[in-house]
Design a protein around this nucleic acid. Structure first.
Length: 826
DNA sequence: CCCTGACTCTTTTTT
DNA sequence: AGAGTCAGGG
C-alpha cells in the first residue's frame, strides 16, 4: 500500500511549484484547452466538495481525468493522495490510462478502482484488526446463495415462506443499510415467527461467513465502514492518506457506500493541537507518516452523477445521495454539464422527450451542435426471432456500408432475451460477444476450479472444501460429508483439517483413501502456492498450482473420460481458465493466489468488453451504462419487458424503467434502432406482446418505422425471416407471402409516414392484429399470409394464449398464437 | 452412492 | 425452453 516516493523522473516532468501557492497553475493550460466553460470550472474548482451533474455524454470522464491530471501536474497532490472510485474495473482501467497519457509516470500510485476493489485492499491490510485473517476470500452472490440455501434447509425456514432467494435479497438490502443481525433483531417484530427465523438465519449466515474467513459482496463495503467506525485510528490512516476523493456514478451509490465516503472525508482530529496540516489549497508534499498526530481537515470530495441515470435502486442505490449532496456537504459547489458530445440531436431529442415524463426531477435538457443526424429506426417483428433477424440483417447491411462490428451494440432488458438473438446471429454469421449473462466464472467447472484454489488459499472456507469434496466423484456423499463435519466439530478443528484424519472417521476404507488423496493434493498445492516460511511464491505458482490441482485431483481425467458431450466443452473452459491464470501471472509478477481469486471475484459484466476482436456487443441495458457505441439496437421495447412487469408494483419502479430506457437511448452516437416483437415466448409459451408505452413518448417525426406495430397486421410478420436466415434473393421458402422484406428494407416514403396517423408511434399501441376469439379446432383448414394453407392438428392453451398447431401444405408444422397470427379460417 | 426421469419453477436488472 | 430438485430403483 505504501506507494513509492515520486521518482526523480516525476520531478523532472513537472514544474516545481512553490509550497503555499494556491489554485491551479498556468501549466495546466493544455488540460483546459478544448473544454467548455462548465467543464473547465469542474476541472479547476478547488474546495471541500464539488458536485458535477453530468448529463449523458457530456464528457464527464474527460472532466474527471483532467481534474486529476491537473491536481498532479500542479503538485497539489501526490498520486498516492488520490482515490478515484469508478463503477467498473474497466472504467477504472480506462481512467488510469487516460490520466497516464496526460501526466505520464506520476499517475502511478493512485487508487483508481471500484468501491469493492478499494475496500478489499483496505480489508486485506486491516482484517486482523477485527478477527479476520488477511487470507479471507470473497463470496460472490452464487456462493452466498449456496450458503443461505444450506442454512434455510437446516433451519427448515421454508416452512415459514422463506426462500433462499428472498432471504438473500433481504440480507443484502439490510447490509447495504449497514444493519447487522444484531441491530436488526433489536427492532424486529419477534412475535412474528417468520421474522424470528429470519433473524436466526441472518445471524447464522454472519457466523458462517466469519467462521469461513469470508466476506460477501455487501460485507466488503459494510465491514470497511464498520472497521472505520470501530477503530478511528485505522480510519485516520486512510483519511490522512487520501486527500482527494472522486466518485463517479454517484447516483448509484447505496447507503453503505455513502457512509464509506463520509467516513473517509471526515477531518482528522489530531492528538496534538498543532497547526492544521493543510489549508487553503496548500500543497502537501509530506508523505503520510509524517505529522501523523496532527489534525487535518477533511479530504476534498468530488462526485459526478446524473440522477436521470439512476438505475440501481433495486440494489439499494439511493438517489438522495446525489439530490441531497448540497445539504450533506454544505458549501458544495455544483457544476452542470448539459452539452452532449456523443449523440446526434435526433437521439437526444428522443431521450429528452422520454425522460421528461418523469416527474420529480430537475429539468435538464441535453443538447448538441452536431446536427440532427439520421432518424431513429423502428421495427416490429412478428416474433422475437423475426426481430432478431431484422437486427442481424441490419447489422449485415451496416457492415457492408463500412461500419465495424465492434461499433455496434444490441441491448435488451433481461438476459434471457439474448438467446433468440444468439441463435439468429450464429445462423447469420454475425460475430458477437455477450457481456455478462451466464458468465464464464459462473460455470460449474470454473466454480469447481475456483473452489480448489480457495480451499488452498483459505482453508477455513468450508463452503469451498465442501464443494470439491465429491468433485470429481469420489464416492463421498451426504453421509460422509456429515461425518466429517461432525468430527471437525468434536475435535474443534476446521472442516479442511478434518480431511487429514480420514482414518479417524467411521467410514469405509475406500472412502478413507479417497479423502486422504484429496487431502494430499490440497497439501501439495499449498506447498507450491503458499510456501511456509516467509518466502513468497512467484506468481507463476498460480497457474502451476491450478494445473496441479486439476490433474492430480482427477478432475480433468474424469471429464475427459466422460461420455457426456458437454464435458468436452468443460475441459476447454478449464484450459481457458488456466490461460487466464497464466495471463494474471504475467501481468502481476508479485501476484499471489489471493490476488488472483480477488480479481476473479470482482470482475464485472462490463469488464470483459474487448476492443480488438471486432464483434457486436450484446448486453442488458444495465450493463450498457457508461458505455457508448456508434450504432445501438434496443430490442424488446414492449410492455412487461421495458417497463418490466415486476417493476409496476414497486414504488418508483416505472420511473426507474424509464431511466433505464433513457440510458439505453443515450448510449448511441450515430444510429439508434428500436425494435420489438408482436409475440414473445416466455416460460416456454408464446404470448402476445404490446408496444412499450415509452415508444409513445418519442415524438413521431423522430422515428422512421420500417415496420410499425400497426403494419404487422396480416401481412408483415413472417417466421420465414427467422427460419431462413441466409436467404439470398429470397429464393428459399416457397411460402405464399415470399420475401416481403429481405435484406433491402425500403423505408416508407417520408410524407406517407408522417401523414398517415396509423404510423404514428403514439397511435400504434392499440392497433395490433386481433383475431378476437377466433375458434379453431382440429381438422379446420386455415390460410396463413405467409405459410399458405394448412390444417389444424390441435389447439392448446386458453384464452388469449390459445395456440394452434398447424401442418401447412408446403411450409411444414408451425405453432401459431391464434389471437394475433395472420390467419383466416377457411 | 449414483443414475434416471418426472416434476417444478423460473426471468428483472448486478458489484 | 432449460435448469434445478426430488423420489425411486439399481
Amino acid at each position: 500500500m505504501t506507494d513509492p516516493a515520486p521518482t526523480a523522473r516525476d520531478a523532472a516532468s513537472v514544474p516545481v511549484i512553490v509550497v503555499g501557492d494556491a489554485g491551479p497553475r498556468d501549466e495546466g493550460d493544455d488540460l483546459l484547452r478544448g473544454l467548455n466553460e462548465p467543464q473547465r470550472r469542474a476541472v479547476t474548482y478547488r474546495g471541500p466538495a464539488l458536485l458535477i451533474v453530468a448529463g449523458a455524454g457530456s464528457g464527464k470522464t474527460r472532466v474527471l481525468t483532467h481534474r486529476i491530471a491537473l491536481l498532479l501536474r500542479n503538485r497539489e497532490a501526490w498520486p498516492s493522495q488520490i482515490l478515484a472510485i469508478t463503477f467498473t474495473n474497466k472504467a477504472a482501467g480506462e481512467m488510469r490510462e487516460r490520466v497516464g497519457q496526460l501526466v505520464g509516470e506520476s499517475a502511478r500510485g493512485m487508487w483508481i478502482s471500484t468501491f469493492h476493489s478499494a475496500c478489499v485492499r483496505i480489508l486485506r491490510r486491516e482484517a486482523e484488526q477485527f478477527g479476520f485473517k488477511n487470507s479471507f476470500t470473497i463470496y460472490d452472490s452464487g456462493d452466498s446463495r449456496a450458503l443461505i440455501k444450506r442454512l434455510v434447509k437446516e433451519h427448515e425456514a421454508d416452512a415459514f415462506g422463506l426462500t433462499p432467494a428472498s432471504v438473500q435479497s433481504r440480507i443484502s438490502k439490510l447490509k447495504n443499510e449497514l444493519a447487522d443481525a444484531e441491530s436488526y433483531a433489536r427492532q424486529a417484530n419477534m412475535n412474528d415467527p417468520a421474522e424470528r427465523i429470519f433473524v436466526e438465519l441472518f445471524g447464522a449466515y454472519e457466523r458462517a461467513l466469519r467462521k469461513s474467513n469470508a466476506f460477501d459482496f455487501d460485507d466488503l463495503i459494510a465491514q470497511t465502514v464498520y472497521l472505520f467506525r470501530a477503530f478511528p485510528h485505522v480510519a485516520d490512516v486512510y483519511r490522512r492518506r487520501f486527500r482527494h476523493i472522486l466518485v463517479d456514478e454517484y447516483q448509484d451509490t447505496n447507503h453503505a457506500q455513502y457512509s464509506l465516503i463520509r467516513e473517509l472525508t471526515r477531518p482528522v482530529s489530531g492528538a496534538s493541537s498543532a497547526e492544521p496540516y493543510s489549508s487553503g489549497g496548500m500543497m502537501i508534499f509530506e508523505p503520510e507518516p509524517a505529522a501523523a498526530t496532527d489534525a487535518l481537515e477533511g479530504a476534498s470530495l468530488t462526485v459526478v452523477g446524473d440522477s436521470d441515470q439512476s438505475i440501481y435502486a433495486f440494489r439499494g442505490a439511493d438517489i438522495r445521495n446525489i439530490s441531497e449532496f448540497e445539504r450533506d456537504f454544505p458549501g458544495a459547489e455544483v457544476v452542470l454539464l448539459e452539452q452532449n458530445y456523443r449523440s446526434t440531436q435526433n437521439i437526444l431529442s428522443a431521450a429528452n422527450a422520454v425522460i421528461g415524463n418523469n416527474f420529480d426531477r430537475k429539468d435538464k435538457k441535453l443538447w448538441t451542435d452536431v446536427g440532427a443526424g439520421e432518424q431513429i429506426v423502428g421495427f416490429t417483428g412478428y416474433s422475437q426471432h423475426d426481430e432478431a433477424q431484422f437486427v442481424a440483417d441490419e447489422i449485415d447491411r451496416l457492415r457492408r456500408s463500412g461500419v465495424g462490428y465492434s461499433d455496434i451494440a444490441v441491448f435488451y432488458r433481461t438476459n434471457s432475451q439474448s438467446r433468440a438473438l444468439e441463435e439468429i446471429f450464429i445462423r447469420s454469421a454475425v460475430p458477437y460477444k455477450i457481456m455478462g449473462g451466464t458468465k464464464f466464472y459462473e460455470r460449474a467447472e470454473i466454480k469447481d476450479a475456483l473452489a480448489y484454489l480457495t480451499a488452498v488459499a483459505n482453508p477455513a472456507d468450508e463452503m469451498a472444501v465442501r464443494r470439491i469434496l465429491n468433485r470429481p466423484r469420489r464416492g463421498i456423499g451426504d453421509v460422509t460429508e456429515t461425518a466429517i463435519a461432525r468430527y471437525a466439530d468434536e475435535q474443534q478443528i476446521t472442516f479442511r483439517d478434518a480431511l487429514a484424519n480420514a482414518s479417524a472417521l467411521a467410514v469405509g476404507p475406500k472412502i478413507q483413501t479417497a479423502i486422504a488423496q484429496l487431502d494430499a493434493v490440497l497439501a501439495e498445492a499449498s506447498e507450491l502456492m503458499l510456501p511456509a516460511s516467509g518466502e513468497v511464491a512467484p506468481a507463476s505458482s498460480v497457474p502451476e498450482g491450478l494445473t496441479l490441482l486439476l490433474n492430480k485431483s482427477g478432475y480433468l481425467e474424469s471429464l475427459r473420460r466422460s461420455k457426456d458431450p458437454q464435458d468436452e466443452a468443460r475441459v476447454e473452459n478449464l484450459d481457458e481458465f488456466v490461460a487466464v491464470a497464466r495471463e494474471f501471472a504475467r501481468n502481476n509478477p508479485d501476484g499471489t493466489i489471493l490476488d488472483f481469486l480477488t480479481d476473479v471475484a470482482l470482475v464485472s459484466d462490463a469488464d470483459d468488453l474487448d476492443d480488438g476482436t471486432g464483434s457486436v456487443s450484446l448486453m442488458t441495458l444495465h450493463t450498457a451504462k457508461g458505455l457508448e457505441f456508434d450504432t445501438v439496437f434496443i430490442t424488446g421495447v414492449e410492455e412487461d419487458l421495458i417497463p418490466h412487469r415486476i417493476s409496476a408494483g414497486e414504488p418508483g419502479g416505472p420511473q426507474e424503467e424509464r431511466r433505464l430506457f433513457y440510458v439505453g437511448i443515450t448510449r448511441a452516437r450515430q444510429r439508434l434502432y428500436l425494435s420489438l416483437a408482436m409475440t414473445r415466448a416466455q416460460f416456454g409459451e408464446v404470448s402476445a406482446a404490446m408496444p412499450s408505452r415509452f415508444l409513445q413518448e418519442i415524438p413521431a417525426e423522430l422515428v422512421n418505422w420500417r415496420q410499425s406495430p400497426g403494419d404487422v397486421n396480416g401481412r408483415g410478420g413472417t417466421q420465414s425471416r427467422a427460419l431462413n436466415a441466409r436467404r439470398p434473393g429470397g429464393a428459399s421458402g416457397g411460402f405464399g407471402g415470399g420475401n416481403r422484406y429481405g435484406d433491402d428494407l425500403v423505408p416508407l416514403g417520408r410524407s406517407q409516414r408522417v401523414t398517415d396517423p396509423s404510423r404514428f408511434p403514439n397511435r400504434v399501441t392499440a392497433k395490433m392484429r386481433d383475431n378476437g376469439d377466433l375458434q379453431l379446432a382440429a381438422g379446420d383448414r386455415i390460410r396463413h399470409d405467409d405459410f399458405g394453407e394448412g390444417r389444424v392438428d390441435t389447439v392448446t392453451g386458453e384464452g388469449a394464449k390459445r395456440i394452434a398447431h398447424v401442418r401447412f401444405d408446403t411450409a411444414g408444422a408451425k405453432k401459431l398464437l391464434i389471437k394475433v397470427a395472420p390467419i383466416t379460417k377457411l
